[in-house]
């Protein structure tokens, strides 16, 4: 019987270690988890509306609550995918195409007329911009505007990120969003829609 008994000792230690490790993991997880939100709480929405924009309308600071939420609109694939759907529901493609532009500027050329920060994009969508960008303030909720902005920002990302909206199951006319998209197209150079808005490299 002795071999069996001596075989048991290390196994016990081992099992105790495993259980302890599992418990530690479980506790860590309890602190880390991020549930998906289908509807933002009203106070959070109100806070998200309070972006501080530079007087020029270019760039600014996101509200504190955005950081408190851990920047979900740029960092979670779910919000970006929702943004992608909003992009089609609100017919953004009628001016911006699949990102390549049209009546409105392109998102794929690496140039942002009002700066690349998410605050600028939120402001552009919420308040509108000259030369035809309409305000969407009264058509979308502010969290939807943030979701859409996160997606728009990802279209023109310089390098692939691990969080990206998925590509569509459809004919592919440009590299999918999840595959380092815009950088491949930068060499074509920006194409200004309005001469006076042209980029000044």
């Amino acid at each position: 019987m002795s071999p069996a008994v001596s075989g048991k000792g290390p196994v016990r230690i081992f099992e105790v270690c495993c259980v302890a490790a599992l418990l530690a993991v479980a506790v860590a997880i309890g602190l880390l988890r991020v549930p998906r939100q289908y509807r933002t709480d009203p106070p959070v929405s109100a806070a998200l509306d309070a972006i501080r924009l530079m007087p020029s309308g270019i760039g600014g600071a996101p509200p504190e609550v955005y950081f408190a939420l851990n920047q979900p609109y740029e960092n979670t694939a779910y919000d970006m995918s929702q943004g992608k759907r909003l992009y089609s529901w609100f017919s953004c493609a009628s001016c911006h195409g699949e990102g390549e532009g049209g009546a409105g500027p392109s998102f794929l050329d690496g140039w942002w007329l009002y700066g690349p920060s998410i605050v600028s994009i939120v402001a552009s969508i919420r308040d509108g911009r000259p030369h035809g960008m309409p305000p969407f303030r009264d058509r979308m909720t502010i969290d939807e505007i943030w979701q859409l902005s996160g997606y728009v920002k990802s279209i023109g990302a310089y390098s692939a990120k691990t969080t990206a909206p998925g590509r569509n199951d459809d004919r592919q006319n440009r590299p999918a969003e999840n595959r380092s998209p815009a950088a491949l197209l930068f060499n074509e150079g920006p194409s200004p829609v309005h001469p006076e808005q042209g980029p000044s490299p």
């Binding site: 289908y38 509807r39 759907r85 909003l86 529901w89 009264d138 058509r139 979308m140 909720t141 939807e144």
Partner: peptide
């Protein structure tokens, strides 16, 4: 409030 009645559905909330 479509999102509370049928969470996750594709009707956006319009203010």
């Amino acid at each position: 409030d479509p999102q509370t009645l049928k969470p996750g559905n594709n009707m956006p909330l319009v203010p």
